[in-house]
Design a protein around this nucleic acid. Structure first.
Lengths: 117, 117, 117, 117
DNA sequence: GTGGTCTAGACCACG
DNA sequence: GTGGTCTAGACCACC
């Protein structure tokens, strides 16, 4: 039912999207501890490296922070992170739209695509 | 009034956009020779390196091809190149839109941005 | 049954490949006149522009030459043209092979692909 | 004894190949920071522009990503990038082989070339 | 003549 | 500090 979460994305991307959504919806709250790498690996039946990678990317995007030896936690200032992401994405969107207009794609057609998303 | 051609863009990007548009509008036709690097450098009053860079990127995107010692030419199969670019861009657009929806941006707001472009 | 001639190639590419093969097999001999653009357009039931484009590319690759007002003819020194093409292609092949080896594709697997071609 | 690393290649290509290999062999890991443009320029005793160019091409091929003001980093999803590159190269190889077969080069001769690579 | 590479070094924007 | 852009100008290889 959700907009992203494509089946053919690599596993670690699916995990990232899943955790992001939980944070965004407030299921996971600021400073809350995430499942440990090993726990989540068992739960999802994937290699611990895959979880490690997902956590690493979530950290680099600012969604979570890592305390060595303690675990991974949801960022304190999660709203700011989201606001920053929004701005970045909106700017990227504007750029893509301009490039499409240059290639003679009509605005209506672009809007149609968005409405179908 | 045109979508691209932003003043703030670096010179080489402006040149790229300009040439792309000429190709798209049919001013430059398949296999037609472009100005030589040095000619265009004099014409636009910039360093030859700047033109060189623009031509190199146009080539790597498939819009033109280079014959060593002869010059740069508009690609034969330019429509396919354009079609490919459209697909790539539309897919990128869809992805951005999905990410924005995940960040709770409303579809209407996204559409508003496109209408302003 | 032939190696190239993919169905999903654009029409003008299919025409190019077809004419190249006729030249290579000696069906079309040096200095022999090719069908006129209009004749071939009717025969193949395509737009004359498509034929024009195929001839233009064949000329730029050296297979044929054009005499304005007279028509298109198979090149005199066709063997040299072919030899040049071979050298260019073999060099390109070597380059691709090296790049594949860098990406840890085994020589055996590359050879297997060639044997299947 | 290695396949790439030709002496005759331009410096920036040698740098690109060198970094690609380090990434492929796992010497450089996902999200690891590369030397800064200036550092590497001093280290390899070349102009910063030359490094800059190498990094730019590595980025456009997806091997690394750039954060303005922070540095250049190995891509997160490097395996996918490699897999994509493999597919592109194999398809290009198949095409070259087909063209060579059309020019009456024997399969055995093509295979011989590969074995010598 | 053409494009391709490279140097030396300046200036900008970002954080 | 980082990368990004740009100039001025040299030298090479190809044809």
């Amino acid at each position: 039912m959700n907009s992203s979460e494509k089946m053919n994305d690599p596993i670690y991307v699916q995990i990232i999207e899943n955790i992001k959504l939980q944070i965004l919806k407030g299921v996971l709250k600021p400073n809350e501890k995430l499942s440990s790498v090993r726990e989540l690996a068992v739960l999802r039946m994937v290699n611990p490296n895959t979880i490690q990678r997902a956590y690493r990317e979530l950290e680099s995007e600012g969604y979570i922070y890592t305390v060595l030896g303690k675990g991974n936690f949801v960022s304190e200032n999660i709203e700011q992170i989201i606001e920053r992401q929004r701005k970045i994405l909106l700017e990227a969107l504007r750029e893509k739209v301009n490039e499409l207009l240059d290639l003679h794609i009509k605005k209506e057609d672009i809007i149609k695509i968005i409405e179908e998303s």
